[in-house]
Design a protein around this nucleic acid. Structure first.
Length: 940
RNA sequence: GCGGGGGUUGCCGAGCCAGGAAAAGGCGCAGGGCUUAAGACCCUGUCCCGAAGGGGUCCGCGGGUUCAAAUCCCGCCCCCCGCACCA
């Protein structure tokens, strides 16, 4: 009958909980260093899944490992519910949205009747928090549950308010506007998973250059939108599509834009008012002024103009834009149009104006040259034109330099001009920005076309602040990032990070304390909450209430500002509590390791660093960050919102906690993704059962005096200990499990096959070695013999004195000899016996000398100076050559005869044939081939 | 496009930084043992050739360095992830 993993697991989880095994309190003795490890709390808009399982299990393995190393480990957990998705989910459930119901019943394993109850955010939070808690307990993480909290807890909100006041005081929060993807129908920003189409689209900022036309009613702005503002110096004309446009009042100006552009402008921070519709025709042939150069350029018609892109007003730069060049050439031949607008002469006289020199290329007029080369004839050849545009832009961007014609900008690289020019234009009142999607259409799940909305007066975290950024970059150098090559990634991301809007109109969370219209956005409220775990213990035990968490108390506890008496007095807690909290905080902080999925690198983990550095003194900044990859299911990407998904609970129910843990730890390393494959998981379960059976068969046996084979096993165990410890120091759980479990299993198998009986000799250490990875089964087996918790035992030390090189080499010798004999028997046909002849002693000596000598000639010289070898020069010489040719490694320390004799039973058992050392029976020519460590074998 | 990572034997995945094994381990597959049978368990094989422990060809593609390259150098092709205000 085989072991029921689940039963064993539940038993020990209960024990651990009842005995408070993982409750962490500051240690009195300084001999026990502390280790504070945190994992990002999960967001509760669904059940915990295999992705969480991976990140959390890595964290738990480290926590358990460190604990066994003698660290005082604090491993806490909380729940994240801030933001909009939970509200969205509650609404969808309330609306009985089919897709949502399908996904949540099928993939999140929520019972339909329960799911249908979850119609408010509060119910959603309550349900999934309960589920998460039981999932996390069911897998047996060594979490100190006295510190759990939810981010909507009142006390947590106090803590967040305190943090935001601090940031405000330090002037790290500023006001501004920013563009978001927005659905006019839902009147809400749209997230990726709310999109029907256009997930790939990004928001790009077109530069608007305000060409103008003086009419009798005043100035009309023709806002040309471009991604390449530097080409304003090469404008020969502007393009309109011959269709209806509108005149609109934009702030204090009158703009000529497409109807679509007008609609879009209404979502920006500008004051917009529609004046009237106008025909583009009535302006064609007229001249507008280029505000940058002062030149007057004509307005011309072009079909390629897309009125649904940016303003619908386009400046024409035929020297550098293939579209423009082709359009002009086409127009030149289009007599009907020329005549219609009376623009024949104007058009014929247009000449491209070159303003960029491309180094190492001999373009004269780039757009012209490439269009001719590609033989593009019409502006309708969109595909070709796109390609031409890309090619030219790529070259100009990387290798282009602005020419004298650009005045002050001459000599600047194209790659460095855009932002500068855009700002200059805006400053001079002749430029602006128009946000547009990079791809279209972008459609919301409700079917409405999305727009870019500019949110006004938004609160921003001032991450672009050079001083702040500089400090973060400096600290990055000092702290540890695992794997190490992610440091570069972090550096890049920190440099790239811009100001981040930290306030929202909608969602769960904490209000900005000085502007209660706004809620603190969810990534912005989870930056230094690891500090809150220390406070949460007091809140959960009832000693401290939310209203006690005043500025004074938090200032004192977290920053040491003021004194306990004052802090206590104003907050209403007693002095002792204030002091204790401060002591706890200083004991546990800083965070020693934050271990997280790689999806959080470009956001949460950055904010985590930024905020710690802003708020706390240097000695409390995070010490290390580790990053791990995702989990896929049978090769398919998991998705919370679409499936497939494997919940943590289901994995544990089906396979058991230990199997799930071992599998996920072993499936891959670092940031590479793990694949959950049922077959492999089942294979692992079989291995773990095998382990359990070994324990049953051997663990309780009396330990015998070790013989050579036992010493081999102990020696192998030492290697495994070393390897496992080394791997864990680098957070390589895959390597660690490989060494501690799989490789040990193989060694044990060999040991038993060789006739070993004394397996109990390593079992205690083996159990301890495995305990961080498969804690339940180890705890179970351990208790067959001990009363203590293996979870609190000390981790096996690598003991060099137990490394037995001779035993290991001898075993290797046996293995190779067996292999050779098998190889021979494969071809030998029917034989009755195998005879072995060990290499003569002189060969051993020659090998030694040869290896010292280093090359053939030197070796021969030394050897031949010994008269014993003179008589057999030929044989010696060919042997020496062979040593070098085969890069021969002898088995110097092996007493071959002894080893073979002691393994004869084993050989005979394995081969089913008689095996004997008997040089007499081995033909001379075979004997001659024998090498030290590789005896002659003869089968007859 | 920018930035980061990567392409290894049927699959997954080590090895690459510190050149020197047909290349760990797992899975799959095949054969054998055990068993009344199934399962579990144990063993063996799994690039090609080979009736004596051997030989040959291999690590995205093409060059190069070296006595020796999956590992170092150069060029090329392909794949994955991030580029945000979303958890």
């Amino acid at each position: 009958m085989s072991v029921d993993f689940r039963e064993v697991e539940k038993k020990w989880q209960k024990e651990w909980e009842e005995k408070g095994v993982f409750h962490a309190e500051p240690a009195e003795s300084s001999e026990k260093p502390k280790f504070f490890i945190t994992i990002p709390y999960p967001y509760l808009n669904g059940n915990l899944h295999a992705g969480h399982t991976r990140t959390f299990t890595i964290g738990d393995a480290v926590a358990r490992y460190k604990r066994m190393l003698g660290y005082n480990v604090l491993f806490p957990m909380g729940f994240h519910v801030t933001g909009t998705p939970i509200i969205g989910l509650a609404e969808l459930i309330a609306k009985r949205d089919e897709r949502t119901i399908d996904v949540y019943t099928k993939f999140h394993d929520v019972h339909l009747d329960e799911l249908l109850q979850l119609t408010t955010p509060e119910k959603v939070v309550e349900y999934f928090a309960r589920e998460a808690l039981s999932a996390l307990k069911g897998i047996g993480y060594s979490i100190d549950w006295r510190r759990v909290f939810t981010t909507t807890d009142e006390a947590y909100q106090r803590f967040i308010e305190w943090q935001y006041w601090k940031l405000k005081e330090k002037n790290l929060i500023v006001k501004g506007s920013h563009p978001v993807r927005y659905c006019p129908h839902d009147a809400n920003p749209v997230e990726d998973h709310d999109l029907l189409m256009g997930e790939e689209a990004t928001i790009v900022d077109y530069t608007i250059i305000k060409f103008y036309f003086e009419s009798k009613d005043g100035r009309i702005i023709f806002p040309c939108a471009t991604l390449r503002p530097e080409t304003v110096f090469g404008v020969t004309n502007i393009w309109l599509k011959p269709t209806r446009y509108v005149l609109a009042k934009v702030d204090d100006e009158v703009w000529f834009v497409s109807r679509e552009a007008y609609e879009k402008l209404t979502f920006t921070d500008k004051k917009v008012e529609l004046l009237r519709e106008v025909d583009a025709d009535q302006f064609i042939g007229k001249y507008v002024t280029n505000p940058v150069t002062g030149n007057n350029v004509p307005i011309l018609p072009a079909e390629f103009v897309d009125t649904d892109n940016a303003t619908g007003v386009v400046m024409s730069v035929p020297a550098h834009a293939p579209y423009d060049y082709v359009a002009i050439e086409e127009l030149k031949k289009d007599d009907k149009t020329l005549e219609k607008y009376g623009i024949g002469e104007i058009v014929q006289n247009l000449r491209p104006i070159v303003l960029i020199k491309i180094e190492d290329e001999d373009y004269e007029v780039p757009a012209k040259d490439i269009v001719e080369e590609m033989e593009i004839k019409s502006q309708k050849e969109v595909e070709q034109l796109e390609k031409a545009t890309k090619t030219i832009y790529k070259k100009e961007f990387h290798k282009g330099v602005l020419l004298e014609i650009t005045g002050d900008y001459a000599g600047i690289k194209v790659s460095q001009i855009k932002e500068r020019l855009q700002q200059d234009l805006i400053r001079n009142g002749i430029g602006d920005i128009f946000y547009e999607f990079s791809e279209k259409p972008v459609v919301c799940r409700c079917g409405t076309k999305c727009v870019v909305k500019v949110v006004k007066d938004q609160w921003f975290l001032n991450y672009s602040n050079p001083e702040w950024k500089g400090k973060v970059l400096e600290w990055l150098d000092e702290m540890a990032i695992i794997p190490e090559y992610y440091k570069e990634e972090f550096r890049n991301k920190i440099e790239w990070l811009k100001d981040k809007a930290c306030a929202r109109r909608k969602g769960l969370g904490t209000r900005i304390p000085w502007d209660r219209e706004w809620l603190i956005e969810s990534l912005s409220d989870s930056t230094i909450y690891m500090a809150y775990y220390i406070i949460a213990k007091y809140v959960n035990s009832g000693v401290v209430k939310a209203e006690n968490l005043t500025k004074e108390l938090l200032d004192y506890v977290l920053l040491g500002i003021g004194n306990p008496e004052e802090a206590a007095g104003k907050s209403g807690v007693d002095v002792k509590t204030a002091e204790e909290m401060r002591k706890d905080f200083l004991y546990w902080y800083p965070v020693d390791l934050r271990s997280s999925g790689k999806d959080l690198v470009a956001n949460h983990l950055l904010f985590f660093l930024f905020h710690h550095i802003a708020i706390f003194p240097k000695e409390l900044w995070p010490r290390a960050i580790a990053v791990n990859g995702f989990v896929s299911l049978e090769g398919k990407k998991m998705s919370k919102s679409k499936g497939p998904l494997l919940t943590m609970k289901r994995a544990v129910e089906e396979f058991g906690a230990d199997v799930t843990r071992l599998y996920i730890l072993h499936a891959s390393e670092y940031d590479s993704d793990a694949d959950w494959r049922r077959k492999d998981v089942e294979g692992l379960a079989a291995n773990l059962r095998r382990f359990y059976n070994l324990a049953k068969d051997y663990y309780l046996k009396d330990v015998q005096q070790p013989d050579q084979l036992d010493r081999w096993l102990m020696s192998r165990l030492q290697r495994a200990i070393k390897e496992t410890r080394d791997a864990m120091e680098k957070l390589q759980t895959r390597r660690a499990v490989n060494a501690a479990f799989f490789e040990m299993m193989n060694d044990v198998r060999w040991y038993l096959r060789r006739g070993g009986k004394n397996l109990a000799i390593i079992f205690d250490d083996w159990l301890k070695l495995l305990a961080p990875f498969a804690p339940h089964i180890c705890e179970e087996i351990w208790h067959w013999k001990h009363d203590s918790f293996i979870s609190l035992e000390s981790y096996p030390e690598y003991d060099e004195t137990k490394v037995d090189e001779v035993a290991e080499v001898s075993e290797e010798y046996v293995r190779m000899l067996l292999e050779d004999m098998k190889e021979i028997l494969k071809f030998a046909g029917d034989v009755e016996a195998v005879y072995i002849a060990i290499a003569e002693d002189w060969k051993r000596e020659v090998v030694r000398v040869a290896r010292e000598a280093g090359d053939v000639r030197k070796a021969m010289k030394i050897i031949m100076s010994d008269e014993r070898f003179r008589g057999m020069a030929k044989e010696v010489s060919s042997f020496v050559k062979r040593i070098f040719k085969e890069r021969f490694e002898g088995f110097d320390s092996v007493n071959e005869e002894e080893v073979i004799n002691s393994a004869l039973d084993f050989f005979e058992r394995e081969l089913g044939i008689k095996v004997k050392i008997d040089p007499e029976k081995v033909p001379v020519e075979k004997r001659r081939a024998a090498m030290p460590g590789k005896p002659a074998i003869y089968a007859v």
